[in-house]
């Protein structure tokens, strides 16, 4: 033990530079850091060049495909013509935004987006919480493990497969309709009914991700001190009261955190999922912000207006996260980051 603790100190004097010890506790007292700081820039550069080289690929990819495109959002203020490129296209000020606000399709897409978000908050969000509580109450480890590995699976399937599965079961020619027909009952076609499309989206999302969503809530329940349950039971609290007064408060920080994250994503609703089914129900029911950007920009070539819509979405999303976080702080919760 003594050797272990002494070793870094030896190294420090040996190399004239604090050893790299990411998780080592700060040693109180004399620290050779000032000396290390004083080391010339060139020497540190030479010493750290392998490390800098290691981070270079990731930094380069992020620079090219995150940072430069972020700057490229200026297209929102241009009449962008691909032939002319960034440098020769005309600046048009806020024109793209005014054109956007005059487009009825945009408002329709926005309304659909909010409706879907609201529906998913209502019908999707509580499901993983309830499932987690149910699984947690399963006492047989074998059963618990089996059920868990079954319901995590859909999370890893692509949306193409999910929609295909739904079509096979619920579609106009799907299993359930055939069974209904053979029993002389009238069928339904939920896969192409614009009126119920948002419910369909939500149920697909539940089927795919509700099981996966339980992981984080199960972890939250597991982190609750079992003695709390035990002493509550001793004092005569039944299962329901234990749930209400111990389990639920124990999960509250995680629930609030996920609510905030969901709120920040309020304008993002299953783009791939909707794009796959947009043809079946028509754009009136299925157009959301992301599909609006895709069809207006990439398909129809209105680069400026589409980018303006995307930029607006990004800015509003960021504001929503910050606002939700502030709200969480006001209620005495921790939120995403601490104050």
């Amino acid at each position: 033990m003594a050797v272990n603790q002494a070793l870094p100190r030896v190294l420090r004097t040996f190399r004239g530079r604090p050893p790299d010890s990411p998780d080592s506790p700060e040693v109180p007292g004399k620290q050779p850091r000032p000396a290390a700081r004083a080391k010339s820039f060139v020497m540190r550069m030479r010493q750290d060049s392998p490390l800098l080289l290691m981070t270079a690929p990731a930094v380069l990819v992020l620079l090219l495909f995150t940072y430069i495109p972020l700057l490229g959002s200026v297209v929102a203020f241009m009449d962008y013509v691909p032939f002319l490129g960034f440098t020769n296209s005309q600046w048009v000020g806020w024109n793209n935004f005014t054109a956007l606000f005059q487009d009825n399709l945009f408002w329709g897409a926005l309304a659909n987006t909010f409706e879907i978000t609201f529906l998913q908050l209502l019908l999707f969000f509580p499901v993983p919480i309830m499932l987690a509580v149910l699984f947690n109450s399963v006492a047989m480890p074998m059963v618990k493990k089996f059920v868990q590995s079954v319901i995590y699976l859909p999370h890893f399937l692509s949306w193409v497969i999910i929609v295909a599965l739904f079509q096979q079961i619920l579609g106009g020619g799907g299993v359930i309709n055939r069974i209904l027909a053979t029993h002389g009952m009238s069928g339904f076609d939920i896969m192409s009914d614009p009126n119920t499309f948002q419910l369909l989206l939500t149920s697909q999302a539940v089927w795919k991700d509700a099981g996966w969503g339980t992981i984080i809530f199960l972890a939250a329940i597991a982190a609750i001190d079992p003695q709390l349950f035990e002493s509550a039971a001793m004092d005569g609290a039944g299962a329901w009261r234990r749930f209400w007064h111990i389990t639920l408060p124990g999960m509250r920080p995680i629930i609030i955190l996920l609510l905030i994250l969901r709120l920040g994503d309020a304008l993002t609703v299953g783009f791939e999922q909707i794009l796959l089914q947009r043809d079946a129900v028509g754009p009136n029911a299925a157009e959301v912000l992301d599909t609006y950007v895709y069809f207006n920009g990439v398909v129809d070539g209105n680069w400026g207006v589409a980018t303006a819509a995307g930029l607006l979405k990004g800015v509003v999303s960021l504001l929503l996260v910050l606002a939700a976080n502030k709200l969480a702080h006001r209620f005495g919760e921790e939120g995403i980051y601490r104050r």
Partner: peptide, 23 residues
């Protein structure tokens, strides 16, 4: 460099600018 990486968690570029970059 760490903040350079972490900031990308908060700001995602839109679909169109990335497409134009790839192009």
């Amino acid at each position: 460099l760490l903040s350079f990486v972490l900031i990308t968690l908060l700001f995602a570029p839109g679909m169109i600018p990335v497409y134009l970059m790839v192009k």
